[in-house]
């Protein structure tokens, strides 16, 4: 007995308050150092975009010696078509994608989570399979199909698949959420004679704003960032997205005008950063919950 209690004091004594405090400080130092390393490239990019052209490559500091908006003005009009057009295009494509994805994916998720119908498990398994499918396998026939429909050089190949719930990840995300809603709500509504459509529209969707918002934000960011789709489907500069515009910038004037390139790079990240700033909690929770298989 005394032996056990002696061991107990030894063990607890090993973690004295001062030692614990030192450990905590060390952890903070390590985390701060890591944060600085992680963020340094981004801050440098931000600083470089405000530097006078001749200073961009001479300084590794993240504070410009003098501030100038020249790079932004030069970059904005650096291509035949201005970045204003690219922004408008990107916003149209991303906006429509958000609408399509949230509608189509929530409908499919409602069917999978709440309705009973023959073949449900089969289709659900198929949906899970598409999550793992590399897009290259469907890429070429899809291209041929969209070309035959005359959709190349329009936004349709980038937007229509979203209205057909082509990204199974969001269905999965919503199914997880819908399953967590109390089933009694549907059953009560059903007894009152509500149709499945009304239950979906009046009960499930209003209760699911967190997951719908998460899906909307991720759809926006991923569509905004998408490079491959626009690269193969958009060939005229007036229909370019911001990402394509940036890439063209690196090809044509980029080698001489780094300031303009950096300024436009920073601008292209602004919408994503704003989402991060205002909704990071939602984004982080979205990732954490899909990561947990429940």
């Amino acid at each position: 007995m005394s032996d056990a209690s002696a061991r107990l004091t030894v063990v607890t004594g090993a973690v004295s308050p001062t030692r614990k405090r030192i450990t905590t400080i060390l952890v903070h130092v390590a985390l701060l150092a890591a944060s600085i390393c992680m963020l340094y490239p981004l801050l440098w990019l931000l600083a470089a975009s405000f530097r006078p052209e001749n200073e961009i490559f001479t300084s590794a500091s993240i504070i410009p010696s003098s501030w100038s908006l020249d790079s932004y003005i030069r970059g904005w009009n650096g291509l035949r078509t201005g970045f204003g057009t690219f922004y408008l295009n990107s916003f149209i494509i991303s906006g429509l994608s958000v609408i399509g994805n949230v509608m189509a994916c929530s409908m499919a998720a409602y069917a999978f989570a709440r309705l009973e119908f023959r073949g449900k498990n089969f289709w659900f398994a198929m949906m899970l399979m598409t999550l793992m499918l590399p897009y290259q396998v469907t890429l070429i026939p899809q291209y041929v199909l969209f070309r035959q429909l005359g959709w190349v050089n329009t936004f349709l190949p980038l937007v229509v698949p979203k209205f057909l719930a082509a990204d199974g990840f969001f269905i999965f995300l919503m199914v997880q959420f819908f399953r967590g809603l109390p089933k009694e709500l549907d059953e009560a509504a059903q007894m009152d004679g509500c149709s499945p459509w009304r239950i979906y529209w009046k009960i499930i969707l209003p209760l699911s704003t967190p997951v719908l918002a998460t899906a909307a934000i991720f759809t926006f960011i991923w569509t905004w960032d998408d490079f491959f789709g626009p690269l193969i489907y958009l060939s005229e500069m007036k229909s370019y997205t911001v990402m394509l515009g940036l890439r063209t910038f690196t090809d044509s004037t980029g080698e001489s005008d780094f300031g303009g390139l950096f300024a436009m790079s920073v601008l292209s990240l602004v919408p994503i950063f704003l989402f991060f700033l205002f909704f990071q909690r939602m984004l982080i929770e979205g990732i954490a919950t899909t990561g947990m298989k429940r």
């Binding site: 009973e116 119908f117 289709w123 899809q142 698949p161 057909l164 459509w197």
Partner: peptide, 21 residues
């Protein structure tokens, strides 16, 4: 009801995934 809700996905799955595959 189930299939009606699934319809957009189903069209996409058959037309943009299985068919192209």
């Amino acid at each position: 009801p189930g299939y009606l809700f699934l319809l957009p996905w189903l069209i996409g799955f058959l037309g943009l995934t299985i068919g192209p595959m």
